[in-house]
Amino acid sequence: MNIAPELIHIAVALAAIAAFIGLNGLVLVWLERKVAGHIQRRPGPYEVGPWGLLQPVADAVKLVGKQLVRPKVADPWLYWSAPLLSFTPVFLLFLTIPFGPRLIGMEFNLGLLLILAFSGLNVLALCLAGWSSANKYSLLGAARAVAQSIAYEIPLLLAVLAIAFQFGTLNLSTIVHHQGPMPWQWNVMTQPLAFIIYFICAVAETNRAPFDLPEAESELTAGFHTEYSGMAFGLFFLAEYAYIIVISCVATVLFLGGWHGPGAPGFWWFLLKVYALIMVIIWLRWTYPRVRFDQLLNINWKWLLPLALVNLLLTLIFVKM
């Protein structure tokens, strides 16, 4: 019976996370459109609700209402499991993120590892989606997704590992506790290179422009999700936003002091930093052209990976001294 409170805690946390993801998904859809609109000298959505606030709701209704179409030659099991597989692991990722001093789904010593492990599942979903669609564009998109995710996971891990080495822990709360309220007490000051590498890799991992090659619409129409319609596409879409939130949350925890901040610490600081990062990611998307695939891999293997290794080595030397 003594295990029950823990379980209830996790159940409540998962429910809260589901609500958080859903709400943030809607906010992000709106934000992305609005920011894109203003970057492009147009108002963005403004008809549905005040400032177009209800636009994502209308979008969601549209997506839910659409017919789910499966190509005749597609493998039904793999085809339908791919969007689910893409979306469901997202819940687990938020479980160990400390949103506030006490606001955490599950205090877990291997929290960072859990996030890294489960975020790797996404590429499996993309691969399945591309493979099972029986569409050549999807297949090419899936091949790109796999190559890209595997490549960029390595420097990402190495960058994160540098932080883990610095504090000797994989517990996210502990890492936040080691940082102070003021910006110069945050890890981004001691590990700027790791932050940059992490951020680039994170954008690439979430398949966002300028690294949106698996779904590069001018080359592969829509890449791995070419054949998906309605809510099946919606789940991919939601998962993409969820992953953006996750990587921003992890970046905030590891590098930007988590819920610390000048004045009163709390989840508002956390959210503020997360949204600042998300804004940067949106901004990148609407500014840059897409890189080419060989260039993408070259950036990784020729620059990010060696730099991440050097960074890790330097961290080790400093920690051991």
Partner: peptide, 16 residues
């Protein structure tokens, strides 16, 4: 052309 290369914004500027 920029849209082909994956940049979404220039076409809006060009169009305007």
């Amino acid at each position: 052309y920029l849209l082909d290369l994956g940049a979404f914004t220039p076409i809006m500027y060009g169009f305007a």
